[in-house]
């Protein structure tokens, strides 16, 4: 016992397991993400958010699109769906409407959710579909080798913007807010405690909830832009983040290595799509209507 309770260097019996392990498909670890990639950190926070939520994990489903963050679904020990590029949200919409007991979480990257999948995001938010969307924003297309993303800051170099980006990126919280999301927060992988809390709040709140997480892509964003390694990006997050809960989302746009406004920006109440359907049909169709999803 005393051996085990001293420093656990390695290859000893672990007296207790890493609390994240039960949430993972252990036979698929180690994962494919690069050294210093922040996606794994967000998975830790998500696992702890699930613990805090005390949900029955058999009733939690995770849906990803394509890309580095798109691989999250494959590592989580939940009902998990790795769909097509950009289409995680409409798949999740069908899954939720077909089986309303499920808590459905979309976990994907910025390119997947906001370039090819942008239209689905705006409509799911407009409808207040009961989904949580977690966007790991690394400002780039990692899986394909560092191309311009709809979030790449002006001035940053990417393989398809080799002289520096000149097109305006999305301000994701502003977009989510404008489309009607009921919960909008932004954190970075430096803010692990706050991120865990935000994920817990997002999965606990009915309706379309959105959490943006800034995470380093050392291989294809940081190094190309001479910003050092993953840990150097996280240090930048630490140094330049400004917590402003309730900030006006139009004020939280990101610039290249500029200040990062983080916090919970939106937390409001709206009827979900399914609740709206049930209430409306009961009103207009009366007893002929067969209430759905209960």
């Amino acid at each position: 016992m005393s051996q085990n309770l001293a420093i656990a260097a390695d290859e000893r019996e672990y007296p207790v397991e890493n609390p994240v392990i039960p949430y993972l498909r252990q036979e698929r670890i180690p994962h494919i993400w690069c050294p210093g990639c922040g996606i794994g950190t967000t998975v830790n926070c998500f696992a702890r958010a699930l613990t805090e939520s005390k949900r029955d994990l058999d009733q939690v489903a995770i849906v990803s699109g394509i890309g580095c963050t798109g691989r999250v679904a494959g590592y989580l020990n939940l009902d998990s769906f790795h769909t097509t590029h950009g289409r995680a949200i409409p798949f999740a919409t069908g899954l939720k409407l077909s089986n309303p007991k499920l808590k459905v979480v979309v976990y994907s990257g910025d390119g997947d959710l906001f370039a090819i999948g942008g239209n689905h995001f705006v409509h799911a938010a407009r409808r207040n579909m009961d989904l949580t969307v977690i966007c790991v924003n690394n400002f780039t297309y990692g899986m394909t080798g560092g191309q311009l993303a709809p979030t790449t800051p002006i001035g940053a170099s990417q393989t398809t913007m080799p002289y520096g980006n000149f097109e305006n990126p999305f301000n994701l919280p502003f977009l989510a807010d404008a489309c009607g999301a009921v919960y909008v927060a932004r954190w970075t992988v430096f803010h692990v405690k706050q991120l865990t809390r935000a994920m817990h709040e997002a999965i606990s709140k009915p309706g379309f909830t959105f959490v943006e997480v800034l995470a380093p892509c050392p291989t294809l964003y940081s190094r190309r832009n001479k910003l050092g390694d993953g840990v150097d990006q996280v240090k930048y997050y630490k140094e330049r983040s400004v917590v402003k809960h309730g900030a006006a989302t139009k004020e939280v746009a990101l610039g290249f290595q500029g200040d990062i406004v983080v916090g919970k920006f939106v937390d409001r109440e709206r009827e979900t799509w399914l609740d709206g359907m049930n209430a409306h049909f009961e009103k207009v169709l009366g007893p002929r209507y067969r209430r759905y999803g209960e």
Binding site: I7, A9, D10, P35, C37, G230, V231
Partner: peptide, 19 residues
């Protein structure tokens, strides 16, 4: 307290050390 390390799956990113 103490830490437990699975050294074979570590990729040396130093997040744990720096933070």
């Amino acid at each position: 307290g103490t830490v437990f390390v699975r050294k074979e799956i570590c990729k040396g990113c130093s997040y744990c050390i720096d933070f």
